[in-house]
Design a protein around this nucleic acid. Sequence first.
DNA 1: AAAATGCATCGATAATTATCGATGAATGGA
DNA 2: TCCATTCATCGATAATTATCGATGCATTTT
Lengths: 110, 110
Amino acid sequence: MEAAAALDSLSALAHPTRLDAFRRLVRSEPDGLSTGQLVEASSLSQSTFSSHLAILVGAGLVMPEKHGRQMIQRANIEALRDLMLFLAKDCCEGRAELCEPLLAELSPCC
Amino acid sequence: MEAAAALDSLSALAHPTRLDAFRRLVRSEPDGLSTGQLVEASSLSQSTFSSHLAILVGAGLVMPEKHGRQMIQRANIEALRDLMLFLAKDCCEGRAELCEPLLAELSPCC
DNA sequence: AAAATGCATCGATAATTATCGATGAATGGA
DNA sequence: TCCATTCATCGATAATTATCGATGCATTTT
């Protein structure tokens, strides 16, 4: 993942509404949620939320699937992994010992 | 880490200048870099960069140390770990199998 | 076919963020 | 002490982002 893509992902997640929606989608994998359900969970207007969603989709963090007349939104776990990999790579490349405590706390959570 | 703190970190990193500076600092651990060196690496004015740096410090991602008349900036690896943990926790809590491929690619890098 | 539903897009406005030069405060050196 | 250096803060302006209601398009239901 290049820095530009990482920036897109970070920017997309750097908003309360979008971070909340993304987390909601990650948790609801692999079923996903409809756009309407997400709008309802947010406290914003439909059009405003739609533009937020478009930013998540544009960053590749969310993948919409057309389902009748509603859209089912699904988190892209691979994109999340890529972002985390990007963030971790800096310290891993420099000095692995910096990365070890990072993984040490990450592993037991799974 | 609560969502509010994660948002601060994400917002802080969601800017080309700040992401670049932070990565530079992670790589230069544990020595750190002076503010002046970071300004030089950026293509911005001293005052503009200073405000960017303040955002990284405010998010807890960078920890300045006074050193004579210059400030030595150091990346806070613990804060980076906390952010990654926060991002990973969503899928881990929901379904561990989503998190496994994430760690699978993360481990060999260290 | 007509009405209703679910969602994206448009246009406008408000709010936030980025940028800069100038100034000021603290420190080290002459 | 006086000057130079390093960096933060201030005030102003430009640029970007967030928000909304209205409208439009596709699809399902009646």
